[in-house]
Write a protein that binds this DNA or RNA. Structure first.
Length: 464
RNA sequence: GGCGACGUGGCCAAGAGGCUAAGGCAAGGGUCUGCAAAACCCUGAUCAUGGGUUCAAAUCCCAUCGUCGCCUCCA
């Protein structure tokens, strides 16, 4: 397997610290507002990676955190006049529900900053003792000049950044690039006791502490959106490696940003579609299909048109799972052999693509080829038994990608009887060649979202 | 200003030195069908532009144009 590593900016051979085991940490959201589909994209990317690693036989310990204390949560809670912890709690629950909706496997652990305070403080203390951090008026800062490797992930040099006009000079810092490990609390803010007085952790330290706590000093994969490369991940490396003296993560994997009308979807730009809004109008599989259809490192274009294409593509995959007609005569041996061969080709192509830095688009292409093979065999008269192995493989591999392929329309079971009744009556109309009437029934049902498909076998229907 | 990514048929998009440039959507033609739908078959790109390296480039190098990201909170 090969994996692109942001640290080296190269595709590298994937080798775990411990054979057969993967320790993977992915940065989760800061819970101060409704999550948008950019968050979902990131979660989907790492879900796909995790599923594939498991398919390849790895045991994956997957940690995704929730940042449940920070300036914005506090601010938002004050605006709303609610308790900041309750606010975070609410968004965490909502997010977990969304993950389920998207068929994203639950992480092994979902740590939260507020529940790891001891470890965070211990780590900061250690950094202070080793001279990598200093305290000032109740704040504690990381001393970037002490870390000769600082900037290695993002490819920046301290000197270059120093001259950047965006950095506001804070008098209390020794160096403008120093960042907060601990922030002194202002009155009314949530605070924890620490050797430096009451305060709360900086953003970056929590991830370092949680990694240490839940995965150990060294991990295999550290993931997140590429907007986290700097400063968040850079700072995590600085903290963790300064503290342990060991290489922190072997592979840094970053997903590209979701783009809406040519711009990154973000809270600050305001061009966001919340997960809630998305799910109201689209099946969850559609977003996954979008993610699968392109490289995870590239920006992902999002629009109604592209989404509609993804939904059609899912239909296409589903077509491969349709059963053979009950009266199928059976296909010739040559057809059966060709299908068997197709199954092999598809699976090996699938693995080959995914092994190459999780090239899911390439893997999908293999599945579409398999679908065509199945449909061809069915058109050639294959029986259910003749199709079953190929269909099973199709199902298995789509599951590796996390696609459910289930029809997600609301089931109105009470409607079934009526539709079936109409179909029966229409059959008589057709038997009497009353085409106009029978077509009208079909058209009007279609307008209601019920699609009829006539075949020699009879008429079947499904929701649009 | 610094760092980085990207530009492949109408749309989404894979491919990263050499087999016929994947796949999906859309479009057109055909088979099947009473008609449709579904399915099946067939049809199209020389890879932003201009140089260069090489026996060979969409793939490497340089330049230009364009788009985007990071440098402040961000998945």
């Amino acid at each position: 397997m090969k994996v692109y590593n942001t640290l080296s900016r190269k595709v590298e051979e994937f080798q775990t610290l411990e054979p057969g085991k993967v320790k993977m940490y992915v940065c989760g959201p800061t819970v101060y507002a409704k999550a948008h589909i950019g968050h979902a994209m990131s979660a989907l990317v790492f879900d796909i990676i995790r599923r594939y690693l498991e398919y390849r036989g790895y045991e994956v310990r997957h940690v995704m955190n929730f940042t449940d204390v920070d300036d914005k949560i506090i601010l938002r809670a004050q605006e709303k006049g609610v308790d900041p912890f309750k606010l975070g709690e609410m968004y965490i629950h909502e997010f977990e529900k969304h993950l389920q909706d998207f068929n994203i496997l639950p992480a092994t652990v979902n740590p939260r900053a507020t529940r790891e305070m001891e470890q965070i403080i211990t780590m900061i203390q250690g950094l202070v003792e080793k001279g990598f951090a200093y305290d000032k008026d109740g704040d504690v800062y990381f001393r970037v000049t002490r870390d000769s490797q600082y900037g290695k992930l993002s490819g920046r040099r301290i000197d270059d950044m120093q001259s950047g006009y965006r950095i506001e000079v804070d008098e209390r810092k020794e160096h403008p690039m120093d960042f907060a490990l601990w922030k002194a609390a202002k009155p009314g803010e949530p605070a924890w006791d620490s050797p430096w007085g009451k305060g709360r952790p900086g953003w970056h330290i929590e991830c370092s502490a949680m990694n240490l706590n839940h995965l150990g000093e060294q991990i295999d994969i550290h993931g997140g959106g590429n907007d986290l490369v700097f400063p968040h991940h850079e700072n995590e490396i600085a903290q963790s490696e300064s503290y342990t003296g060991k290489t922190f993560a072997r592979y840094w994997i970053h997903n590209g940003m979701l783009q809406l009308s040519g711009e990154k979807m973000s809270k600050s730009v305001g061009n966001l579609v919340t997960i809630e809004e998305f799910l109201e109008n689209h099946p969850a599989d559609a977003l996954r299909m979008l993610v699968l259809n392109s490289g995870y490192r590239n920006p992902l274009s999002f629009s109604d048109e592209i989404l509609a294409q993804a939904e059609k593509a899912i239909e296409r995959l589903r077509s491969g799972l349709k059963p053979a007609p009950a009266a199928a005569p059976g296909a010739a041996q040559s057809v059966v052999d060709a299908l068997a061969h197709q199954v092999e080709t598809a699976e090996s192509g699938f693995v080959q693509s995914m092994d190459d830095d999780f090239n899911s688009a390439g893997a999908l292409a293999q599945l579409f080829d398999l679908v065509r093979g199945i449909n061809q065999a069915r058109a050639d008269g294959a029986t259910g038994a003749q199709l079953s192995a190929a269909q099973l493989k199709l199902r298995q591999l789509t599951t590796v990608l996390g696609l459910s392929l289930e029809k997600e329309t609301e089931t109105h079971q009470e409607v079934d009887g009526f539709v079936n009744l109409l179909i029966e009556i229409r059959r008589e109309l057709r038997a009497n060649k009353l085409w106009e009437l029978s077509d009208s029934v079909r058209d009007r049902l279609a307008a209601l979202g019920v699609v009829l498909e006539d075949s020699k076998e009879g008429t079947s229907w499904h929701w649009k």
